[in-house]
Every structure is written in structure tokens, then in C-alpha cells.
Design a protein around this nucleic acid. Structure first.
Length: 701
RNA sequence: GGAUGAUUAGCUCAGCUGGUUAGAGCGUUCGAUUCACAUUCGAAAGGUCACUGGUUCGAGUCCAGUAUCAUCCACCA
């Protein structure tokens, strides 16, 4: 930090000068601009007679020495007064000599269009005073009390003095009116360290950083130092855009940081009378006094990317890890932290510290409130972990999120993710009894799960490369729970293929590892105990993709039949133990016949060759038609309603497809693949509709 | 005052360069039961994608405007 400070000082980027700073009279310290928050406050707005003018103010106690009147040059009401005119005015302690200034900074529509200025206690007034070389005089002391200039009010606090001063002006007939309920923004310190009393602007001598054109210019020349990894724009932030980062004019770098960055000895900035010394070590001769100011906490934070790697030493770590690829942080400190890291790194090392910034949202509570100490809604990660586990918390924070959007964290959400971690654990427990074999697809289910696994690998890999965590997790979750656990493992109980089972699980552990490092590592250790290798260091899976998909489509047919039969059972409250029978026709009949034994075990439904006399329900699919025989007392009208609902759905779909395909603009301009797919879809839909209407007809017969 | 984001199922949120009937989790309803897992299994219901225009053969997706909410920045005597 000392090195950085000295270098910036030598470059003329850090200097000491008089500026308006935020002064905390209780903490006896300046507050960095970044640590000031504005709270909406309701107060009184006073109008006073000031010579021929009326002026308005919320802070009458600062007005003792006001002797400059400012108005807009084009304000017709005051056209008779010229810039530089002087006039004698009766004021708080007798007559003052006032000077007229004309400046465009004044908003003619606010108040009376005339204001007096108090250079020492207002940024805008300070700027005006600098512009016209006016005298600047403090009215309020560093202890928050009025100075001797306030005459009879000297030594009083702002709160004590305000109404007394107003009363005195009223006695003198100078109070025009008061407006209650004047809403304005009061500057207060965000750090709770000192006190919650209001701060006020006070001019003082304080080291500041000048954000020179040199730094900003360099930044622009390199551009693209931040690549947002979402399609969104960067959140608002002054001077921050996709291409350039700079910090507004000048920032005050000292502040109330005793509690944060330790001590006043962080940098060497000494004074001996008018002399100034800046160095890495204290000067050897005597008479120097160390500057008591401390640096704002963001100063050291800005050095973080390289100071943590050993800079200013030329360490191996610095060589290897700087600049890095990705910085991940919350959008709320983009301006405070990220911008400073870039500027400091550019200036001191000549390089941008990272290529991409992943900006995550803020964690909020289940009511959408920001976590805060005063609300008491802060979440202690250790407590959550104690109850639900580390991976559950991690998944809850990463799933269903998108860069830059806030995350509501609720017990329900963490619990859902804990349940998933538990599911994965149980899957592995089931697989633990499987023998280690070379994975080789034997059945339809084997081919299906391997093809689906390949697809999952591709999707997850691509999603991660694009920072789409939500898509990666959702894809993995669906494959793991729906395809693997609920279908493949259930089938594995009937047709064992240990090699495939273990291969899929092993691949899944690798894919899940970034999101659930602890559970996956533990499971990996259990199944690979021989060489002690870590999952963390193992290879990311590659898709095999040897043959074009076919098993997935076939398996979907099987899955559809099974689901439909289960659906029938649920609809008609059929005893799950009763074995149903069904017949099959259609393209996929041979395929399904081959799988009949499996289907029978999955849904207790037996394939028969010829129709029985029992009432049948037709299950209609694009590739098959099944007749399922039910007990004679099933509810025909319910079935009819079910079929008619599906018919209505399909008809609507059919109409939209047909309309689209009849539109010659569509068939001419849309890509061929899209048109072909929709033609195909239309044909399938027509076939289904035909089967459906036959079923409905049969049911009525 | 300036800027940005959000608005999709009861709730919390995904939805990439526009392309078939809109997705998940939780919750709800109906059913199952101890099999790796009740921290479970099967099934179902539930949405005019805030509103109004525009671009396009085609819009949740792109553009403009409006409304509401949130956040950041700047702050007025």
C-alpha cells in the first residue's frame, strides 16, 4: 500500500488540497464519498428577506457571512442587477456588503431563483467560490459547533442554534415565511462506527486522488476490459460502460477507517511545517509528524488483484496469476471495487487485471429484502450448512439464477436442494452394489441412457462456457432425477447392466462437481478407493457421440405408453396390483412388443394378442395405438371427456400449423428445416386426430 | 434529475443468436407404501408471458411508448 501510495503521489495523482469533504463531528473524521448515504429527511425550508431579494434555505445557521448573491443571467426578474454590483444589506448581525454574481448554475425555477453562497459548507458553493476566487470562511467548527463568527450563537450546536437564529431574523422582520415538510436528502455516514448523527459538508485539507486523463485515457485505449457475461448491460454506474471505466473527477481517499484498515500508519505521508514527505520508510531526520489521516477502505481493496500476489515484489504468483481470467462479484460494488482494481492495476502494473467480470445479484431474504444487520434477517451460512449441508446452500444460490439478478434465499429453496443432494447420495448407494464392468449397451434402456448422457454433457458444457449456470443445473437435475433415477435405475432393477450404471453415475459426479463439490467428492472417493485420486482434479467428461440418436426416440415411445397406462390407473382409481391387458398396433408395435416383458413389470400390464370382450380405452400416439382393457364398470363419460379435451387441444394445434403452412410467405421465407418439421408435425397430428375421433366414436357405440 | 434492471403458473424463478402446443422447483389435488431414497414413488390441475403500438412469414424473445416495483449515481440554495 505504501508503494502504491508513493507511486501515485509521484505521478501527481495523489495530492493534498482543500476540498469539500464529508465531516463527521462525532467520529472526528472525514467520511469518504463512498461511505456517505443520503437519507430522506423532512425539515423546514425558510425564506428570508435579504435586501431587495428573498432567499431560501434549509440551513439558516450557515448564513452568517453570506455576502454573495447568485442568480441566473437570463432571469428577467433580476435583469436590473449586473454581475459585480454591490449593495448594503441588513443581515443577522447588522449590515453586510453583498456582491451580485450571475451564473448559470442557478436554477431560476427553484425557490426564488436567488441564492446566497456558503463556500465552506457546500460543494456547489465551493465550486462557485473557486470559479470567482471568493473568500471561503468556515462557520461551523470540526466539533459541530458554531464558530466565533456566529457571534452570540458561537459554541452552540446546529440543532440548538437554528431556531434561535430564525427567531432573531424574525424579530428583525427578515423572515418571510417558512415551509414545513420540506423533503431533502441528508448526508449521513453508512458506517455505523461513529454515530448516526447527521454529517455535514465541511471544507478541509485532505489527500485526494485525482483521476487524471492519463489513467482514464489508458483505459480507453485498451477497451473491453470488462466483458459483461450476460446479454444485459452493466448496471448503472457513472462512467462505466462496456468499454471504459473511470471514476468521476476527484475522490477523497481518506475516511473513518480506523475500525477497518487498522491504523494511521498505513502510508507515509508526513509533514514538517510546509514540507511534505512521502516515502516507503519514515525519514531519518527529525521534526516530522505523521499525517493522521487513514485511507478509505477501497484504496487497499483496489490493490487486491496484485497486492495479494506479493506485489511490489516480482513473485512467481504474480507472474502466473496476474492478470486472471474471471472476476466474480456482486454488481453493487462494481463502481467501488471493480473500477478501482482496474484503474490501479492499469496505472501501477500496466495491465487490466481480469478479462471477464461475472456479476452476480445480491442475496435477499424470502421477502425480497436486502440482508441487513439492523433488520436481523442476515443469513449465517454456517448455520444453514449445519442444517442443510454445504452443497444444498451452494445449489440454492446458483440454481435458477441469472447474472445480475438478485436471488431470494428461502428455507424452502435450500430444502429442495438438500433433497436433491440426498437423492444423488441414494443413487450412489444403490449403485454401490453394482459390479465394475466395462460399460456396454445391451438393451434399449442402456442405449437410451447413454445417448441422453451425451446430450447432457454437451448441453452442460456449453452452458458453463456461456456462464448459464441455471441452464446447466436444470439440465443436470432433469437428467439425474427424471431420466436416470426414475427410469434407468428402475429398469436396472429388472435388467441389470452394472457397467452402464456405474459409467453414468461416474460421469454425473464429474458434471455435478462444480455445483456440489462435497457430496460428489465423497461419493467419488467411495467408488474409486484404489488410487486416491481426487474428483476435483479429474477430467471433465466428453460426449461419445458415436452414432446418431435413435434409442432416445424409441425409448420415448415406451415411456409414453407406460405413462399413459399409469395415467389410466390414476384416473379410474384402478388397483395398482391388478394386472391390465392391452393390444398394440402401429409402426412401433414390434418395438414395444420386444419390450413387453419390461413394460409388464413397470406398469403391471400384459400384452395380449387379441381383443377381449372387456371395454377398451384407446391410447393414441403418433407411432402406435394401444387398446387397454378395463373392468366393465369404468366411467365412460369421464373417458369421453378426457379424449374430447385432448381432441380439442390437438385441433387447435392442427389449425395453427395448417394456417402457417398455407401462408406462402412462411413457406417461402422460413428456413427449409423449419418448414419441413412443421409439415411433418402436421401429418402426425392429422393421424392422431383421426385415431382419436375413432376412439371417441367407439366409446359412444 | 440521470441511469439500469425487473414484470412469465398460487409462490420463487429459468427461458441462449426470434421458429412446433410455455419450463423447473416449491405449494396444491388424487393415488401408492417401506424396495437406494417418505429428504420417496406414480398421476393431475394450474399461465392472454404487465399494458399499448411497431418490425417480421412468425414475438415471452427485437424496437418504441406507458404503468408499477427495485437498485445505483448525482443532488439545489
Amino acid at each position: 500500500m505504501r508503494t502504491a501510495f508513493k507511486k501515485l503521489y509521484d505521478l501527481g495523482l495523489i495530492y493534498r488540497g482543500e476540498r469539500i469533504v464529508n465531516w463527521d463531528p462525532v467520529g472526528q473524521t472525514t467520511i469518504s464519498d463512498e461511505e456517505v448515504v443520503y437519507r430522506e429527511t423532512t425539515g423546514t425550508f425558510y425564506y428570508f428577506k435579504y435586501g431587495p431579494f428573498t432567499i431560501a434555505t434549509a440551513r439558516p445557521e450557515t448564513k452568517f457571512r453570506d455576502k454573495y448573491l447568485v442568480m441566473h443571467p437570463d432571469d428577467e426578474r433580476y435583469a436590473e442587477y449586473q454581475h459585480g454590483d454591490t449593495l448594503s444589506i441588513e443581515w443577522i448581525d447588522g449590515p453586510v456588503e453583498a456582491t451580485i454574481l450571475k451564473d448559470e448554475i442557478v436554477d431560476p425555477t427553484f425557490g426564488t431563483g436567488v441564492m446566497t453562497i456558503t463556500p465552506w459548507h457546500s460543494q456547489e458553493d465551493f465550486d462557485l467560490a473557486e470559479k470567482y476566487h471568493l473568500e471561503k470562511e468556515p462557520i461551523i467548527g470540526l466539533d459541530g459547533r458554531l464558530l466565533p463568527v456566529a457571534g452570540q450563537f458561537a459554541g452552540q450546536t446546529i440543532e440548538e442554534a437554528r431556531e434561535k437564529i430564525v427567531a432573531k431574523l424574525e424579530e428583525k422582520g427578515l423572515l418571510v415565511k417558512r415551509e414545513e415538510n420540506y423533503v431533502h436528502q441528508l448526508a449521513t455516514a453508512s458506517a455505523p462506527a461513529a454515530s448516526s448523527s447527521p454529517r455535514f459538508s465541511n471544507s478541509g485539507s485532505s489527500p485526494s486522488i485525482r483521476n487524471s486523463n492519463q489513467v482514464a485515457g489508458k483505459q480507453r485505449s485498451k477497451h473491453s476490459c470488462i466483458r459483461p457475461c450476460a446479454r444485459r448491460k452493466l448496471p448503472s454506474c457513472p462512467n462505466a460502460s462496456r468499454k471504459t471505466i473511470s471514476i468521476g473527477s476527484t475522490i477523497c481517499v481518506t475516511g473513518a477507517s480506523h475500525a477497518r484498515s487498522g491504523s494511521g500508519t498505513a502510508f507515509r505521508f508526513g509533514n514538517r511545517g510546509e514540507e511534505v514527505f512521502v516515502g516507503l520508510e519514515a525519514p531519518e531526520d527529525t521534526g516530522w509528524e505523521q499525517d493522521p489521516d487513514t485511507l478509505d477502505t477501497w484504496f487497499s481493496s483496489g490493490l487486491w488483484t496484485f497486492s495479494t500476489l506479493g506485489w511490489p515484489e516480482k513473485t512467481a504468483d504474480l507472474e502466473t496469476y496476474h492478470p486472471t481470467t474471471l472476476l466474480e462479484t456482486g454488481y453493487d460494488i462494481l463502481f467501488f471495487w471493480v473500477a478501482r482494481m482496474i484503474l490501479f492495476s492499469e496505472c501501477l502494473l500496466g495491465e487490466v487485471p481480469f478479462k471477464t467480470v461475472y456479476l452476480h445479484g445480491l442475496v435477499r431474504d424470502d421477502q425480497g429484502r436486502k440482508l441487513s444487520k439492523s433488520l436481523g434477517n442476515a443469513v449465517d451460512p454456517l448455520e444453514v450448512i449445519e442444517v442443510y449441508g454445504t452443497d444444498a446452500l451452494r445449489l440454492a444460490l446458483t440454481s435458477g439464477t441469472t447474472p445480475g439478478n438478485d436471488v431470494r434465499l428461502s428455507d424452502q429453496k435450500i430444502e429442495a436442494n438438500r433433497n436433491f443432494a440426498n437423492k444423488l447420495w441414494n443413487i450412489a448407494r444403490y449403485a454401490a452394489s453394482a459390479k465394475a464392468e466395462t460399460p456396454e449397451a445391451k438393451s434399449l434402456a442402456d442405449r437410451f441412457i447413454l445417448e441422453a448422457l451425451d446430450e447432457t454433457i454437451l448441453t452442460v458444457t456449453q452452458a458453463l462456457e456461456n456462464y448459464q449456470l441455471s441452464i446447466a443445473i436444470e439440465t443436470l437435475r432433469a437428467f439425474t432425477w427424471d431420466d436416470f433415477a426414475d427410469w434407468y435405475i428402475e429398469i436396472h432393477k429388472l435388467e441389470k447392466n452394472d457397467g452402464v450404471l456405474r459409467h453414468v453415475l461416474d460421469t454425473l459426479l464429474r458434471l455435478w462437481h462444480p455445483f456440489m463439490p462435497f457430496v460428489t467428492e465423497a461419493l467419488f472417493q467411495q467408488s474409486n478407493d484404489e488410487d486416491g485420486a481426487l474428483l476435483m482434479g479429474s477430467r471433465w467428461p466428453q460426449a461419445q457421440k458415436t452414432a446418431p440418436d435413435s434409442a432416445r426416440a424409441d425409448f420415448e415411445v415406451l415411456r409414453h405408453l407406460v405413462t399413459e397406462i399409469r395415467n389410466l390407473r390414476a384416473t379410474y382409481h384402478l388397483n395398482p396390483k391388478t394386472t391390465l391387458s392391452y393390444t398394440l398396433t402401429g409402426d412401433a408395435a414390434p418395438l414395444l412388443t420386444e419390450q413387453a416383458a419390461l413394460i409388464e413389470k413397470l406398469v403391471s400390464a400384459e400384452l395380449v394378442q387379441s381383443a377381449s370382450d372387456a371395454p377398451a380405452i384407446k391410447l393414441v400416439h403418433g407411432r402406435f395405438e394401444a387398446a387397454v382393457f378395463l373392468p366393465s364398470d369404468f366411467d365412460r363419460s369421464a373417458e369421453r371427456a378426457r379424449l374430447e379435451k385432448e381432441q380439442a387441444n390437438l385441433t387447435r394445434f392442427h389449425q395453427s400449423l395448417a394456417a402457417r403452412l398455407e401462408n406462402s410467405d412462411f413457406t417461402k421465407q422460413a428456413p427449409e428445416a423449419v418448414v419441413a418439421a412443421q409439415r411433418n408435425s402436421l401429418a402426425e397430428t392429422e393421424e392422431k386426430l383421426e385415431k382419436l375421433s375413432r376412439s371417441i366414436h367407439d366409446l359412444s357405440a
